[in-house]
Amino acid sequence: MSDKAPVLEMRNVDKSFGPIDVLHEISLKVHEGEVLCLLGDNGAGKSTLIKTLSGVHQPTRGQMMMDGQEVRFPRPRDAQEMGIATVHQFGGTYPLMSVGRNFFAGAEPTKGFGPFKVFDRQKANQIAVEEVQKMGITRITDGDRLVGGLSGGERQSLAIARAVYFGARVLILDEPTAALGVKQAAHVLRIVNEAKRRGLAVIFITHQVMHAMAVGDHFAVLIRGAIAADFRKGEKSREEIADLMAGGESMADLEANIEGYMETHDGHPPPPAH
């Protein structure tokens, strides 16, 4: 697998907005059937990185490669056409539309006579339900159901199934598990695995180390716009990763500090640092 060119690669990408440098020298690659986890605390530059990958922003310096060829995405549409699909937390689903209509929004199947195009509801519902079930969500059986009635995990799964169906090669998942309960998050993680099994390259953005470790093959920790660590599965423990994300400050030290303070101050936590 490693002798094949990565599906998507960033080489020394910088991104600045005017005088503010947001990303520094980012180099990443993700292969087919591989999950790259991007870990980082809030404000670490994760969203800028995603937007650069999906064509919303252009890199200020550096190269982006797909299958070993240099590419540029002037618009998000260009990235989509190359097979890069981005799924945001709830993005891409419309609560008051049915599963079938959601699945095909913008690419409706039609049966037509002449200029009169007719939205093929039955076909849309059938394909949508099939595809979602193939991804392992068996609870969705009725394509007419409104998406607003689905759980957060199911909606997320629907969006992923949609991206897979429309030929995505790279799946960028932006904090897909952040707002979900434990069970639903497990749901989504299972779908990430399924996408990986089908040979997609997945970039999984999260700040939940547990979720990353459950599916990731490759990990990159982002701190203040730079990659602070880059390692493969099994090379670091959960504590080490959490410490890295907290900016090198050991989580254990932090906990010890707080506990020490509470002991000497009648159980009150320390005032928040400004």
Binding site: Q80, Y94, P95, L96, M97, A105, G106
Partner: peptide
């Protein structure tokens, strides 16, 4: 019609979906 519902549901997503 699907586009109209999608635009009203979430304009940003609708635009991303190519509508």
């Amino acid at each position: 019609g699907n586009w109209i519902f999608a635009i009203g549901g979430d304009k940003e997503s609708a635009r991303n979906a190519g509508i």
